[in-house]
Design a protein around this nucleic acid. Structure first.
Lengths: 147, 147
DNA sequence: TGATATCCTACTTGCGAGGTAGGTTTTCCG
DNA sequence: CGGAAAACCTACCTCGCAAGTAGGATATCA
């Protein structure tokens, strides 16, 4: 297994927010009930989404959460990255400021990491897939659109 | 992070076996030394590779391991799956016997899991990337080692 | 003013990755 | 034949983190 259930839950929350998108915010109590997830745990997830600027919270009675942007403007790469921390297939791989892929095993210039090519390819395919999928794509209920 | 270091190490072992591929087997002692990995831990990894039929062991003095097949005939999907157990982006997703993607959250026919589309896409892109990359692709990118 | 919600901090728990240890069996080589 | 060197096997340890709980402080509406 590669992504934590935290990410799974978080994506479900985002879909639910997009689905009920309207003038009034949606409370986590409602979402916890309809998705059958523990409220206290959802609060942690949503904190990540909020800090990433994907949702906005309204405090107090009749409060809740709203999407910061319309669903078509939110890529699932943003959502997953906010929940997961970062998107890297393996510990030694990360992205530098320029978006280039860095392998921490390559301390020496001579010593090219033979597996870097593999993880770079995997990383690229995951990220581009997540970027191409928008939150709005998951809202429209179409049965079985498997790839 | 998505793949364990077990998978990272295992891939490095496979690359090393492919690189030194010849008539005589390569011992884990050698690989552990050159890759700077703990021998006892490598034994566990290689056991998985052996059970998956990717590698053959020769016991006794002058023994070691050999690739069961030529490197171009080994896809990295096989290697990663042997090491990781299975390739699924998330707990609720798995593959059935026909290769179709199954979501364990979809108990009811009415209740289509809205996030299944996302994980299906991610799963597909990872698997196809791993299948397209052969073990031999990772070997040929370093100046030839003195034999 | 009370109910309802976000928001914040601290704690608990279970599990699996990562690694160690020590043995048994097999095979080569001198 | 007798080590030595290797695979092979089983059991164990430990530590970090995901997953979840708990309880409160703060904000807002009716």
């Amino acid at each position: 297994m590669m992504f934590s259930t935290r990410t799974e839950y978080g994506v479900r929350v985002m879909v639910e927010l997009a689905r009920r998108n309207g003038d009034s915010p949606v409370s986590l109590t409602d979402i916890a009930a309809s998705e059958e997830l523990p409220l206290a745990y959802l609060e942690h997830l949503v904190a990540r989404l909020r800090k990433a600027g994907l949702v906005e919270g309204r405090r107090g009675a009749r409060g809740g959460y709203l999407l910061s942007r319309p669903a078509p403007n939110i890529s699932m790469a943003e959502v997953v990255e906010a929940l997961e921390g970062s998107i890297a297939p393996i510990e030694c791989i990360s992205q530098d400021a320029d978006g280039g892929v860095v392998c921490s095993r390559e301390t020496d210039v001579d010593h090219v990491c033979p597996t870097k090519l593999l993880w770079t390819r995997v990383q690229g395919s995951i990220v581009s897939t997540l970027q191409d999928t928008r939150l709005s794509d998951l809202v429209q209920q179409r049965p079985a659109v498997a790839a």
